[in-house]
């Protein structure tokens, strides 16, 4: 068990992240990542291999920054009109891992509203967080959608 204060700080870090995404501050969101940080959304339940098994998203900072620029500046077709989202994170469990890292598990729900469409995403987040100054940086964020191996429609906003 982590001390109450660390647990509390990790929870607010996750809440802040959700708020950045809901507010459309994708650049701010990307700043939460380490320079080598990875965002991984597997396509298979329990997927362990990102090389031999396709992922819905498997991107490091360099590719994520292209994704973010696309969201922000170029107004991708799939983003007209810009979707509005509510990202909820809950059931947050944090543990200290190796090298001063923290491993965090959480459940999430995201409701995305765009024009006349509404979509619901849900699943579990797993984070590897590194301590940085008085906050954290994301080494790895893994997003396991409950329907990761199902039939999808285009996804645009990070979960």
């Amino acid at each position: 068990m982590l001390d109450y204060q660390t647990q509390r700080r990790i929870e607010s870090f996750l809440h802040d992240e959700a708020k950045l995404l809901d507010g459309g501050d994708f650049e701010g969101w990307l700043k939460l990542y380490e320079p080598q940080g990875i965002y991984w959304m597997p396509s298979q339940p329990g997927q362990t291999d990102p090389l031999n098994v396709a992922s819905i998203v498997y991107e490091d900072h360099g590719i994520l920054s292209i994704r973010v620029q696309r969201l922000l500046e170029e107004r991708a077709l799939v983003l007209t009109p810009m979707p509005r989202t509510t990202h909820l994170v809950s059931n947050i469990e944090a543990q200290s891992g190796e090298d001063g890292d923290y491993t965090v598990q959480a459940a999430f729900v995201c409701i995305e509203h765009q024009a006349d469409k509404q979509r619901i995403y849900s699943g579990r987040h797993t984070y590897h967080l590194a301590l940085a100054d008085d906050s954290f940086r994301i080494r790895l964020k893994r997003v396991d959608l409950v329907n990761c191996d199902g039939t999808h429609v285009p996804m645009a906003i990070p979960l």
Partner: peptide
């Protein structure tokens, strides 16, 4: 149709990604 990914990809530095 794909200009929204072409433009940021062009502006991004080469080999910024270590993954691929």
């Amino acid at each position: 149709v794909h200009s929204s990914s072409v433009m940021p990809a062009r502006r991004a530095p080469a080999n910024a990604s270590i993954l691929d």
